[in-house]
Design a protein around this nucleic acid. Structure first.
Lengths: 162, 162
DNA sequence: CATCACTAGTTAAATTTTCAACTAGTGCTA
DNA sequence: TAGCACTAGTTGAAAATTTAACTAGTGATG
């Protein structure tokens, strides 16, 4: 086992379990979503974020940040959704460089139809199997992690090695 | 908020935190790996799995299963690594339909050079920030989840809705 | 041992994602 | 207010991934 110095074996095991299960979970969720609603995970998340935003609209950059998408990936994603009538795109009033993605009525309808299926899938694949302590632990770990990574991304970044 | 019926708000929050932080973590790990070692996450995992396998070789299907890759994705992945000299491919002795990926010396060397950096990155981005109880909890949750999803994939599958 | 349903893996085409320019607009500074 | 560095977002080409055939081999059944 070349690869397990420097990370104690407990943590190495945790890492492996986390990575593998997450991978499986994500592909499972994608498949369900695709089967139930003909949406990708990304599509769904865009719809959720827009539906929650004031005016059902969000700047491209803001959306990219929340989805953890590169700018060009978001451009592509949104134009694909636009083609399918789920969102539209409008120039941003106060910054003429920018544009905002806007949820359409069809997009909202699609979301409200998809949501119950998706949530059921989150429950059956993950949440129903966790007791309250585990849920709390999950939240604590990933809230903190998310905050930390978000912060790291903003400033200079990277880890120690090099 | 169209999207939060049916999943209690505690669990919904856990889900969001988990998804977002994981996304960030994975892209961060990819970036580090790429910067330190010029490998993708997938490359790295292939090297790890092969290095641990008896004879440093694994059937394509077996590898695909463990990586959670589609067959065609794995074919592509391996031929790319073959081009770069990290693995070779040999016909499988006992099943003439099959082939196995074999770790090369160069592949092993690459792995031993990459591993410390990668592990450091796992530590700094995730593990160093978790106390032992959290590590234990993480392991418990994702071990169980992985087992469950692995089992579901084998049999008929899917969730309840529909 | 011929047939046939099934498994392993590959291939080609379409879609998605990345990567590296590039365009346009902003806003500070002199 | 001209110049300039920086930000927002897009674009085109290359790389990765998915999807749907497809090839070859296996193994059970009659």
């Amino acid at each position: 086992m070349v690869v397990t110095e420097s990370l104690d074996s407990t943590r190495a095991a945790a890492w492996r379990a986390y990575i593998e299960a997450s991978q499986r979970l994500f592909t499972q969720m994608e498949d369900d979503l695709r089967a139930d609603s003909d949406l990708s995970f990304a599509d769904y998340h865009v719809l959720v974020l827009l539906s929650e935003a004031p005016g059902q609209r969000l700047r491209m950059g803001e959306l990219a940040g929340r989805l953890v998408f590169s700018p060009s990936r978001l451009t592509y994603q949104i134009s694909s959704m636009q083609r399918r009538g789920l969102v539209s795109k409008e120039p941003c009033p106060d910054d003429r460089r920018g544009s905002e993605a806007v949820l359409t009525a069809a997009g909202l309808l699609t979301l409200t139809e998809a949501a119950p299926h998706h949530l059921a899938s989150v429950r059956t694949h993950l949440m129903d199997d966790l007791d309250d302590a585990e849920v709390a632990c999950l939240t604590r770990i990933f809230d903190r992690l998310g905050r930390r990574l978000r912060a790291a991304g903003t400033t200079s970044d990277t880890h120690a090695t090099r």
